[in-house]
Amino acid sequence: MANIKSAKKRILVNETKAARNKAIKSKVKTSIKKVDAAVVANDKDLAKEMLRNAISELDKATTKGVYHKNTTSRKISRLTKAVNSIA
């Protein structure tokens, strides 16, 4: 355990930020799973709706600094490709 006051504060701040990042990542993963489930079920309308929500969540996570912009672009690209593959 830290003895210096500023070090103690950093520990608390890091815990807070880690919890925030974890919540945001969890939200993103859930939205991605919903898209994948719709693709597996071959429900194009639901998949498009879920894709729209997933892209929104990914963009929010990127602006908050949780994901790098290239990571977000890659994930969006793969999801879009999967949704477009539905006949």
Score class of each variant (00 low, 15 high):
residue 28 V to C: 04
residue 62 T to Q: 07
residue 83 V to H: 00
residue 75 K to F: 05
residue 40 V to D: 10
residue 79 L to Y: 00
residue 81 K to A: 14
residue 54 A to C: 04
residue 65 G to A: 03
residue 3 N to R: 15
residue 75 K to C: 07
residue 21 N to D: 14
residue 61 A to T: 00
residue 48 K to R: 09
residue 50 M to S: 06
residue 51 L to M: 02
residue 31 S to F: 01
residue 80 T to D: 03
residue 68 H to M: 08
residue 20 R to T: 10
residue 9 K to L: 14
residue 82 A to E: 00
residue 51 L to F: 01
residue 12 L to I: 10
residue 37 A to M: 04
residue 11 I to R: 11
residue 18 A to S: 13
residue 50 M to I: 02
residue 6 S to P: 07
residue 81 K to Q: 11
residue 27 K to Y: 11
residue 20 R to F: 15
residue 75 K to M: 12
residue 68 H to V: 09
residue 60 K to E: 12
residue 64 K to S: 11
residue 53 N to I: 12
residue 6 S to V: 06
residue 51 L to Q: 01
residue 84 N to E: 09
residue 29 K to S: 14
residue 78 R to G: 08
residue 60 K to H: 11
residue 20 R to I: 13
residue 82 A to N: 04
residue 34 K to M: 07
residue 82 A to K: 05
residue 74 R to G: 13
residue 7 A to G: 13
residue 69 K to Y: 10
residue 85 S to M: 06
residue 80 T to N: 03
residue 19 A to Y: 04
residue 22 K to I: 09
residue 43 D to L: 04
residue 43 D to M: 00
residue 54 A to Q: 00
residue 38 A to I: 00
residue 64 K to G: 06
residue 36 D to H: 06
residue 67 Y to C: 04
residue 44 K to Y: 05
residue 75 K to E: 11
residue 22 K to S: 15
residue 85 S to R: 05
residue 23 A to Q: 12
residue 59 D to R: 06
residue 56 S to R: 13
residue 74 R to Q: 13
residue 61 A to R: 00
residue 74 R to M: 12
residue 32 I to V: 04
residue 55 I to Y: 09
residue 87 A to R: 06
